[in-house]
Nucleic acid binder design. Structure first.
Lengths: 212, 212
DNA sequence: GTCTATAACCGGATAGAC
DNA sequence: GTCTATCCGGTTATAGAC
């Protein structure tokens, strides 16, 4: 009896986790497509194939659901940022970082869009991330960029504005994919085209900042 | 009598133009802050110091008002793009273009934000601009970039992805100003800091693409 | 032309049956 | 835990007085 109860309980936990994950993924998509205000709980539920009340059952409110989506997105961003780690070799570090950010834009464009949307509208729900964890990450990388310049491995450029360039360029391929597709005869970039875009970016930035 | 009538009529036309311009500018601000769905006609009217019904009197619907804001923004974008015109000298042309786009981001960040918001959410109202006027502009500039490369003035880089880099980097300073401010101890970039950002971008891109 | 008052609608949230 | 039916607040748009 006890075992059966445990088993049933475990099964419910799993079902719950699965339902929550489905709603989270769907919500990220809808928030990306429509923005926070434009997204409706009805549409999230419909795309997830659930009645609206279930969404409220799992995630109390639309705002709470949105916050969890934002948290997910930020963690993924930080994970890609870990690629900035071959600290002896700026060429390797920058190439790996730009590539990882481009891959994230390719694989999870909706996350990038949710983030962009949030920032554009004044970052009401994630301002604390910006001035704490994001700032810490940025400062630690500036230290390394400055070191590379002292060693003569890089030309003197402002490290912070270099990072902004990398963020802007890589995220552009997610956030502005509609525009990029429209300018490509309404065909989304193929894997090969995307690879060329990535290499062009790496090429221009490395040539622009490395000393050799 | 006729003269007086004309005079009164002219005055009304002026008053009307003035009211419309005020509403347009205010609407651009509110749409930038809140997105299309997040913006309310009530808030636009309040910020403009008018009763809500006046907004509907001048601009039939919220959607129509939004379309006119988008049109305005696109024209300003094209005007900055005219700076890409010193066709014999890639250094001059690229420097002038990047500077003009940066100045536009600085002076009219809300326009850039409205545009970004529109693209992120699938460009429902401006898709036609993208595949017509924007594409024409882009192709004509690619022709010139290719010519510079044939002449040996530039290293071989994909012209289109170079343009995307310039768009992404320059517009980032408008669209992500909240993030940039948060990372700057919650202080907006000063004119001097902004100038450094601009010079860093020009420096990296020119060094990255020019041959000499 | 200007503004107040209101109609018509829609979306978030919840009560309560199953 | 799941879902239907409903409430309530807020938004667009307009009718109609001035």
């Amino acid at each position: 009896m006890k075992l059966a109860a445990n088993s049933a309980s475990t099964s419910n936990v799993l079902r719950r986790k699965k339902g929550e994950a489905l709603i989270l993924r769907t919500a990220e998509e809808v928030f990306a497509d429509r923005g926070f205000q434009g997204a409706t709980v009805t549409e999230i539920a419909k795309r997830a194939g659930l009645p609206k009340a279930n969404v409220h059952y799992y995630f109390a409110s639309k705002e709470n659901l949105y916050k969890q989506v934002i948290d997910d997105v930020f963690e993924a961003w930080l994970k890609a940022a870990e690629q900035f780690e071959d600290f002896d070799n700026p060429r390797k570090a920058l190439t790996a970082y730009i590539s990882a950010k481009m891959d994230l834009s390719r694989e999870r464009p909706n996350g990038s869009k949710v983030w962009a949307n949030e920032i554009i509208h004044g970052a009401p729900t994630i301002h604390h991330y910006l001035s704490t964890r994001l700032q810490e990450w940025l400062i630690s990388r500036e230290v390394w960029i400055n070191r590379w310049m002292e060693r003569g491995q890089m030309r003197p450029v402002n490290p912070r504005y270099l990072m902004y360039m990398i963020w802007a360029c890589t995220q552009h391929y997610a956030d502005f994919d509609t525009q990029i597709t429209a300018l490509n005869q309404d065909k989304a970039l193929s894997d090969d085209e995307f690879e060329v875009a990535k290499q062009t970016m790496v090429d221009i930035i490395l040539t622009g900042v490395l000393r050799e």
